[in-house]
Amino acid sequence: MSRIAMKVNGADITKDVADPTLLSEFLREHLGLTGTHVGCDTTQCGCCVVHLDGVSVKSCTVLVGQAAGHAVTTIEGLAEGGQLHPVQKAFRECHGLQCGFCTPGMIMAATELIATYPGTLNEHVVREEMEGNLCRCTGYHNIVRAILTAAEEMLGPDRVVQPASDHAKTEG
């Protein structure tokens, strides 16, 4: 048992937790932040992605002690003042989800990608960089569209290349 202190979604948290506790388990079962989903529990599916000091990590493969003293952001921490984050908004508008199970991980991965990617975002880059997040429903097309839509809103049109076919559809 250790006393664990960390910042979660901007709030200082201190809890006594057993050392084998995973960060995903801590968020869900100790803090009640069940927006972080556990899909495979084997570092593959990406449903459990959160930000650790602004960097995306699979929280099922981080011990709570490794995150102690650091800042964690979960899907619950994205919306501000009742306004959805641009990535959340774009997933809704572009129908970037069906069952919704992978969505928190997808959105956390996408927000980090948009915030940190140094170059121009396009469909190829998004598909490659989102390789660590699996979706069993959508076929990914609308997820990619949502991420590029949000990226354009956040970074401006100079940093994003939209898929050509989608431009045609929008304009048509």
């Binding site: 570092t43 990406g46 992605v49 960097v55 995306s56 990590v57 699979k58 493969t61 981080v62 991965a109 990608l113 960089e129 989102m130 390789e131 660590g132 997040n133």
Partner: peptide, 9 residues
Amino acid sequence: IGDRHVRHR
């Protein structure tokens, strides 16, 4: 190696 999140750790 792996994927973006794995490379972060």
